[in-house]
């Protein structure tokens, strides 16, 4: 849940979520099944989309 944050830099999002694939070797299917990313704040929805994008990007680079 992303609510309450002031903002999130792309470096952080990439390391945190792309890192699950690159470093922790979790595959995208596993993450889709076990990780739910969401926010109730409209202005933070882009950050959720970016986190999902970094998982996707890391999966294609892996």
């Amino acid at each position: 849940m992303f609510d309450g944050v002031a903002g999130l830099g792309s470096s952080f999002l990439e390391e945190a979520f792309g890192g699950l694939v690159r470093v922790e070797h979790m595959n995208k299917k596993f993450l889709d099944e076990h990780l739910l990313l969401y926010t109730e704040e409209e202005e933070l929805e882009d950050f959720v989309a970016m986190a999902k994008f970094y998982i996707e990007e890391a999966s294609t680079l892996d």
Partner: peptide, 15 residues
């Protein structure tokens, strides 16, 4: 305006 993105921009510059 869009202060969440401004926050992200400034922290990224610091990083």
């Amino acid at each position: 305006p869009d202060n969440h993105y401004l926050y992200a921009a400034v922290t990224e510059a610091m990083t």
